[in-house]
């Protein structure tokens, strides 16, 4: 588990940031993206896959959440 930050990038998409390792990347897909349920599996531009326990959609981005690395780069 690691603390990650999800923020809105300039192009309107989402971006992923892992503070400890300074990994910054675009999020290409997010499993759940509805007002009630947000999170799940997220896929990054670099091929990495992380899992965020689904929560109600955050009122505001950026948000720091706990995430688990499923696959790909650390």
């Amino acid at each position: 588990m690691a603390n990650i930050m999800v923020r809105k990038s300039a192009d309107g998409g989402l971006s992923f940031y892992l503070p400890k390792r300074d990994i910054e990347d675009s999020i290409i897909s997010i499993e759940f993206d509805t007002p009630e349920k947000w999170g799940g599996e997220i896929r990054l531009g670099n091929g990495g896959i992380y899992y965020i326990d689904p929560i109600p959609a955050p009122a505001r981005l950026p948000i720091s959440v706990r995430a688990r690395r499923v696959d790909g780069v650390e």
Partner: peptide, 12 residues
């Protein structure tokens, strides 16, 4: 960048 990210999250 670290403190900028923090202020973005905490204070918008």
């Amino acid at each position: 960048n670290y403190i900028s990210r923090h202020m973005e999250e905490k204070y918008g």
